[in-house]
């Protein structure tokens, strides 16, 4: 059996009210140690108020080669953006 500690992806909530953001990864034997290590590696200067640790092999990711089929369809749908519509000045803020 391989004796290297598994890799964990670390997500930190920077401030109350913000979402957790991916900040990097680290190795740890289990979730508890991953959070302890994350606290030492990623929050030494008040960078966070909450930590999530996810074992890297549990993350499902889209493939770079799917970029076209996944994201191109939305490029032609400009009407999904509010700026598509002309609202007369007289109408006021909308």
């Amino acid at each position: 059996m391989k004796n290297e500690w598994p890799l964990w992806e670390i997500f930190i909530r920077g401030q109350h009210g913000m979402s957790h953001r991916h900040v990097g990864s680290l190795h740890a034997p289990d979730a508890e140690m991953a959070i302890k290590n994350a606290r030492d590696v990623y929050t030494r200067r008040n960078e966070g108020v909450s930590i999530w640790a996810v074992e890297a092999n549990h993350i499902a990711a889209s493939s770079p080669s799917d970029k076209g089929p996944l994201y191109e369809p939305s490029e032609s749908k400009v009407y999904r953006h509010p700026t598509f519509f002309d609202i007369p000045d007289e109408v006021g803020a909308m």
């Binding site: 290297e4 890799l7 990097g24 990864s25 680290l26 190795h27 030492d40 590696v41 030494r44």
Partner: peptide, 21 residues
């Protein structure tokens, strides 16, 4: 302690290229 952290950030970056820690 920062230097240890810097080493860890960089090792993780290298690991994404397919080499283990």
């Amino acid at each position: 302690q920062d230097e240890a952290g810097h080493g860890l950030y960089l090792y993780c970056a290298a690991e994404t290229l397919g080499v283990s820690r």
